[in-house]
Design a protein around this nucleic acid. Structure first.
Lengths: 133, 133
DNA sequence: GTATATGCAAAAGCTTTGCGGGTTC
DNA sequence: GAACCCGCAAAGCTTTTGCATATAC
């Protein structure tokens, strides 16, 4: 049994066909798909209703298995526990991941100074490619 | 004429009654109101359609006068040019501003290393109050 | 006077929900 | 077997759009 499915069990999330299918899609995705896109991908191999996709994503997010991000206009999901930043390239609209533990540490410190404990964060940077000539 | 209105003129944004009213609300707001909330506040003193509120906010954002943030589930606005971070207190749902120029500088550096120039950013931190006793 | 903005109402997207039937543990 | 989940369809929100009228410059 995969690590994710074990986490679900531990948190009282029943492992149904649709849930396994959604998890599988997110495990094999290297991008940050929207609900519609996740639904489309799952449907390539399984039968699933759009409403179910929404419910599964909500349930898994609530259980801490997934993380929800609100990018340009709708929700996008990824597996939880990934602490990184998202750079939105303004020219192409692409979402790039930036992995910088030092930045995370700094954020954590800033919050601690304010008396908070960092639970999650979502950094959305907008950048333009520097002209180098 | 206020600084904001001058900026609008310079950028070819006609100064209509509804636009002045929306700007006035955002100038006097210390929070980050949603579209519905902005509409509600403007309507306390002026006649304005919801569709107009949306169009005004889109136009002013496009002109760089306002900044749009996608928080929990919908768009929120504030005057542009404010570089700070937003901390969402998970227990209360309140949005708190964190002003930390050092953090901004670090973000800028990280982007430069990647060949990008920082245009804008939106940092959404989720935190819980630390138990201090 | 012309280009652009507004109001209203209708429509378009994304997301949630009620209900009967089905599945997991 | 009980609790929970799924599919379908309908409804709820936020946001956009078409069109006739009104306004800014």
């Amino acid at each position: 049994m995969g690590r994710l499915e074990q986490t679900c069990r531990e948190r009282g999330v029943k492992l149904t066909q649709p849930r396994r299918a959604v998890l599988e899609v997110l495990e094999t995705s290297r991008d940050h798909p929207s609900v519609g896109e996740i639904h489309r991908r799952v449907r390539q191999r399984h039968r699933i209703a759009l409403a179910t996709t929404y419910r599964v994503l909500n349930r898994l997010t609530e259980a801490g298995v997934l993380t929800r991000h609100l990018f340009v206009d709708k929700a996008h999901y990824e597996l939880a526990g990934r602490r990184h930043h998202h750079l939105i390239d303004r020219s192409t609209g692409r979402i790039v991941e930036i992995d910088d533990p030092a930045l995370t540490a700094l954020l954590e410190q800033a919050l601690n100074r304010l008396g908070y404990r960092l639970v999650d964060y979502h950094l959305e940077l907008t950048g333009e490619v520097e002209r180098s000539g």
